[in-house]
Simulated scan of single mutants.
Amino acid sequence: MNKNDLRYIKTEDNLKQALLTLLDQMSLKKITVKMICEVARCSRNTFYLHHEVKEDLYNTVVSNVLNSMQNAFQPRVDQVDQITDDILDEYTEGIMTSVASHKDSLRTLILQDNGLFFKQFTEIIQNTVLKGSSELANHFTVDTQLYSSYLAGAISGFIFNWFKNPICDLPTATKALKIIHRETMAICIKELKKEGHC
C-alpha cells in the first residue's frame, strides 16, 4: 500500500468527505463503517486498508483541519512590546480567514462536538502561540500560561459560538473578534508589563 499513490489519496479523501457528510446527519457513535463505505463508494476491505476503526478516520479529519489552520494562530511578532492594534487586527483577520476556508468541515465538527474538538482546538491555539513567541517561551510562568490559556479559550469560544449561533456574517464576526481581542490583549499586555516580561 503506497500512501503517495493517487488512488490511495483519492480514496482517503472520499472517506474523509463521507464521514463529514454523515456527521452532518448524525453523531459519530451512530455512524458505522458500512455507512462510511456506502457514501464513499468503497468496500469495507478498502476502508480497513486506510483505517482500523471509524474513530481513526475521525481523528485524521480533525488533525488535518487543525494542522491546516495552525499557521493562522502563529504570533505575528516575537516580543510582547511589538504588539500594536494593526498587528492584533491582522492576527484576528488571519484566524477568521482560516476559519472561512475550513467552514464546512469546522461547522460539521463543531455542531457534532462533545467537548473533545473544542479542547483540541483550544490546545492547538495555545501551543502554537507559546511555541511561536520566544519571549513567552522564555518567560513561561504560571501567569503567562494562564493568560495564553484564557486567550485560546476565548478565541475558541467565539468561533464555536459563531458556528452554533450564526447571527451574523463573516465580516461582522471578524470585526467583532478584532474589537474583543484587541481589548483583551490590552489587559494581558498591561499585566505582562507589570510582571516585567516586556
Rank of each mutant, 00 (worst) to 15 (best):
M1S: 13
K3D: 12
L6R: 04
K16T: 07
K16E: 09
K16W: 09
A18V: 00
L19G: 02
L20K: 03
L20G: 03
L22G: 04
L23F: 03
M26D: 15
M26T: 15
S27Y: 08
S27F: 14
L28S: 00
M35Q: 10
I36K: 07
E38Y: 07
R41K: 09
S43H: 02
N45Y: 06
T46E: 08
T46F: 10
L49I: 15
V53N: 14
K54Y: 14
E55D: 10
E55K: 09
V61A: 03
V61M: 03
V61P: 06
V62I: 14
N64W: 11
L66R: 05
F73P: 00
Q74E: 15
Q74S: 14
P75F: 00
V77E: 03
V80F: 06
I87V: 09
L88D: 05
T92G: 05
G94M: 02
G94H: 03
S101Q: 10
L106K: 07
L109G: 02
L109Q: 02
I110K: 04
L111W: 14
Q112V: 15
D113Y: 12
L116G: 10
K119P: 00
T122K: 09
T128N: 03
G132V: 09
E135L: 01
A137L: 13
N138V: 08
F140T: 00
T144I: 04
A154C: 12
A154T: 11
S156C: 11
S156W: 07
F158A: 01
F158R: 01
P166I: 03
I167P: 06
I167A: 10
L170W: 08
T172F: 01
A173L: 02
A173N: 04
I180R: 10
I180Q: 11
E183Y: 13
K190F: 15
E191Q: 14
L192F: 12
L192Y: 01
K194R: 08
E195D: 08
E195M: 13
